[in-house]
Amino acid sequence: MSASPNTAGEKTADHRRRRKADRRQDTERRAAPNTMRVPPWEEQRTQYLTRLLFCALGIAYFNLGGAAQTSAWVNLTVVNTVLLCYGAEILWFMRHAARRLDVRWRWHLTMWVDLLAASFAILADPAVISPGFLAYLMVILGNGMRYGLRLFAEAVVGSLMCASLVIGLRLFDYLDAISVSAAFFLLFFVIIVLYSYSLTANIEKGRRRLEAERDRDHLTGLLNRRALHERADHLLRDPATSRAPLVILFADLDRFKAVNDNHGHHVGDRVLAEIGRLIAGSVRDTDLVARYGGDEFLLILRDTNLAEVGVLAERLQQTLAEWSRRHDVDLSFSIGLGQYPDHGADLKTVIERVDQAMYRSKLARGGGGILQVGEAMPAGAAP
């Protein structure tokens, strides 16, 4: 943990600048309305399999039923070629999704390919009221329900643009075939889209509220233990992040029991809430921060290393010391540090070893120490 003053100062300044920039970028991203959620692999796989089903139905629609027909725009060979290429595109993106779940450009691109494929099918269909129009609705609902309102709105705008283009290209066909049933079909389509948007908005709000109530510690606003393990497991399962090291910081408040004994639990609760705020303000929004127990806090940090987190640990101790002086309480942090997978084959093992390192640090110094997993206790410290 030791370093020359200049080196430590440079590391601290660089660490603070990087974390401030990361925090600003993440805050801007969260402030954007209707942030997209990341569906698990099972949901994304279902969506790709549904696309394959519609592709197969499209090929059957144009090729079965006696004399296969198409509109004057294309012939059957072109239709089959385009639909087969669409199926190949689905398989490629499905394979890509199996390796990396959270790829926003893939979600957008696949949605627009869906819209173009549906538009092509409508142009190729000799029937004026084509089943392809229902594909627009499936694209809107499929993306909105899985990825949130932002992609829902994009799908609505894209569907209207594509439908307007198709209607414009086949305007004379539609003028010849205009009827009351066709007008009501379009009216019902618009009503269903608007109603679906309203339902999706309410579902999204309810989901976020339930997630907040389920995942957050009511006192500090930090993650609770169960939510921390869930999100950490997601990082380990995601192919994009599973191989990246994770640094674990376990912090325990020293002498917190005296605050409860001397001032009451209501004051102790306010102290915990304030310390939770101090910790959350010292890290990036991409870091996982949880109240792990009564006066224990656990941090899981990505894209960093033990040396940088050591600087963070020292800064947390300094921040708490300054806060304690201002509020006339005697508190400090005992901190243990470790890294996955260097200090354990699974995250549970690493957390246990980091907890042991924190406890050894508390015994060695009587509080206020920092100890890495496998690091020897300072000379002269209590065993």
Rank of each mutant, 00 (worst) to 15 (best):
T81W: 08
G65K: 04
P126A: 01
G66F: 06
V113I: 15
D125S: 09
D114M: 13
A117H: 05
Y86C: 05
I129E: 15
I129N: 15
I140K: 02
R146G: 07
H108P: 00
N80F: 03
Q69T: 14
F93H: 10
T50M: 11
A124M: 07
F54T: 08
L115Y: 03
D102R: 13
V74A: 13
A135Q: 06
L101V: 11
M138N: 11
A68V: 04
W107L: 06
V139Y: 08
V74D: 00
S119T: 03
L137H: 10
I122R: 07
R146C: 09
L116K: 00
Q47C: 12
L84R: 04
G65P: 08
T50V: 11
L84Q: 04
G66L: 04
A127P: 05
L57R: 10
G148R: 11
V78Y: 10
G58C: 09
G144P: 02
L84T: 11
H96C: 09
A121L: 12
V79C: 12
I90V: 15
A72R: 14
L49H: 08
G58D: 03
I129T: 14
L149C: 05
I129M: 15
M138F: 15
A68R: 08
C55L: 04
G66M: 07
W107K: 02
D102T: 06
R150Y: 07
A56E: 02
T70F: 01
R95Q: 09
V128W: 04
S130D: 04
P131F: 07
A124Q: 10
R146F: 03
L64S: 12
L53H: 03
N63K: 07
W112Q: 14
F62Q: 02
L101I: 13
D114T: 09
W92E: 07
L76Y: 08
F152S: 13
A124I: 06
V82T: 05
